[in-house]
Each structure stands twice: as structure tokens, then as C-alpha cells.
Write a protein that binds this DNA or RNA. Structure first.
Length: 263
DNA sequence: CGCTAATTCAATG
DNA sequence: CATTGAATTAGCG
């Protein structure tokens, strides 16, 4: 899955409608631009639009969260946290959007639940990307994908990730714990079975979670990837700096909604 | 405008 | 926390 397609140069002009959002990067830049505090005609400081709704679908947000994770898998709460840390908008109405996140995780085949192995106790299971969903956003990060990633009923019923062991840390914290521990050993694997007509080899396929989940060619080192942008933001004290543009012209929908919600 | 992806409400385990 | 359904909203070709 590549959320940040081949756009080496940031757009000189920003999209004027949601239908022209080319990819995650310019989308993010535009979003940041729309969040700049402005002064209204009376010179009064208008509420910062930091809380405007991010131009990403829940599918995109979840995918980004999981991909930026060292272990390429996160627990529900870690996903919530990542989203809230990056987008202030989601610090509000948590009950509503978090329910939507849960619905997305369960409903979309691109997300697979990874149950915890005995050696990694904790609350809730992990969520990872299905290995076959890597090209979901190849045509750019749209609010809506062209096609939904859907598994055949056959595969859906038999495919599942069995366990997440310490070989698959999902956070920096756990990563450290793992480091002082040992390396290979317990089995973490993708488990597929039931395809009897495929013979012994095909009827039971074990794939290492590490290769199946972690080694998907994510490309987040791209200079304009969201991660790079986020890092840049953090280095600037989370003070997003962007060209001065008219936010309402970029994302009128988000802009207006935010204004209406101003409290 | 039509198709269908995404979001929301919410019941149930 | 996870799954599912039904109804509604809303991107995008």
C-alpha cells in the first residue's frame, strides 16, 4: 500500500474542490493550510481551524496509523491515540467517530485482527493491514477509494492472522522490551487453511507475520509523505507553517462546518 | 445523476 | 471490544 504516490513536487496551487485532491501529501498540506488562524474583516482573530475535519476517510486514517507503526500493527486504543495526536478535530465527539473506527475495522477486509500471543498480554487485539490491500490508494488518497478491498467469501472464511508475538512489536514501548529479550523463537504466522483442492502444500499455508505484514513496501520515507510532514511539524514545535491561502477556497465544506461548530 | 463507498446509529454478543 | 445490519450521506466517474 502506497499512500503517498509519485508526486515529487508539491502543487504550486492547491486543489479547489475535493474532486481534485491528488494524493495524501497535497491533501495534508491543504488541510494544514486551512487550519491557519485568520483575522476577520474586523481584525478579530478568528478561531483557529485546527479542529476542522481532516480530509481523510476513516479507512485512510487507520491505514496511516498502522503503517507508521514500527510493528505495522496497532491496538484499537493506539489507533485512536494516533489519530487524536495528529488531528485535534478528533479530540471531540470521541464516542461517535471511535464507533465508526471500530465499524471500519470490522467491516473492511483490508484490516485484519491479530490476536495476542500468550507472551504479549494486554487489552484488545492488534489490527494490521491485509497483505493484499497494498494498492488501495495507488491512485491517490481520495476520500473515497475507487474500489473497496474485498476478499472472496472463500478466502475471508479461511484467512486469518493467528498470533502476534514479541517478534512483532506494535509500539516503541514494546519494541524496547523486545530488544532486551531474545529474537526468533515463537511462531507468528498467517494461517490459511481449508483449501483442500489445493493439495497438502496449498491447504495449509503459514506465512510469517513479519514478512506478510511488516514487509509490505510502504513508502513513508518519501520527502512529501505524511510522516515527513508530521516530523517537520513536530520539529517546528507542532506549529504548522504553510503558504497563506484562503482556506474557504480550498475546503469550503470543512471550513464552513468548522465555523458552524465553533463553540 | 447513478453507483456504491463511507459514515452513523445502535442492537447484540 | 468486536461484529453486524440497516439507513443515510456523500465522493467521484
Amino acid at each position: 500500500m502506497t499512500l503517498n504516490p509519485v508526486v515529487m513536487n508539491p502543487p504550486q496551487s492547491y486543489p479547489t474542490s475535493s474532486s481534485t485532491i491528488p494524493n495524501l501529501d497535497s491533501t495534508y498540506q491543504s488541510y494544514i493550510c486551512s487550519n491557519q488562524t485568520k483575522l476577520d474583516k474586523k481584525g478579530c482573530e478568528r478561531r483557529s481551524l485546527t479542529h476542522s475535519k481532516p480530509p481523510y476517510s476513516y479507512i485512510s486514517l487507520i491505514t496511516m496509523a498502522i503503517q507508521q507503526a514500527p510493528g505495522k500493527m496497532l491496538t484499537l486504543n493506539e489507533i485512536y491515540q494516533w489519530i487524536m495526536d495528529l488531528f485535534p478535530y478528533y479530540r471531540q465527539n470521541q464516542q461517535r467517530w471511535q464507533n465508526s473506527i471500530r465499524h471500519s475495522l470490522s467491516f473492511n477486509d483490508c484490516f485484519v485482527r491479530v490476536s495476542r500471543a500468550p507472551d504479549r498480554p494486554g487489552k484488545g487485539s492488534f489490527w494490521a493491514m491485509h497483505p493484499g490491500s497494498e494498492n488501495m490508494f495507488d491512485n491517490g488518497c481520495y476520500l473515497r477509494r475507487q474500489k473497496r478491498f474485498k476478499l472472496a467469501e472463500k478466502e475471508k472464511a479461511t484467512f486469518q492472522i493467528r498470533k502476534a508475538t514479541k517478534q512483532n512489536p506494535c509500539s516503541e514501548k514494546e519494541k524496547k522490551e523486545e530488544d532486551k529479550g531474545k529474537q526468533r523463537g515463537t511462531s507468528a504466522f498467517l494461517h490459511q487453511e481449508g483449501m483442500n483442492e489445493m493439495g497438502p502444500e496449498g491447504s495449509f499455508v503459514d506465512l510469517d507475520v513479519e514478512s506478510a505484514v511488516r514487509d509490505i513496501h510502504y513508502d513513508f520515507s518519501h520527502p512529501f509523505s505524511i510522516n515527513s510532514l508530521v516530523e517537520a511539524g513536530e520539529q517546528n514545535g507542532m506549529v504548522y507553517r504553510a503558504p497563506d491561502v484562503d482556506a474557504s477556497a480550498v475546503y469550503p465544506r470543512f471550513y464552513n462546518r468548522s465555523v458552524l461548530n465553533t463553540s
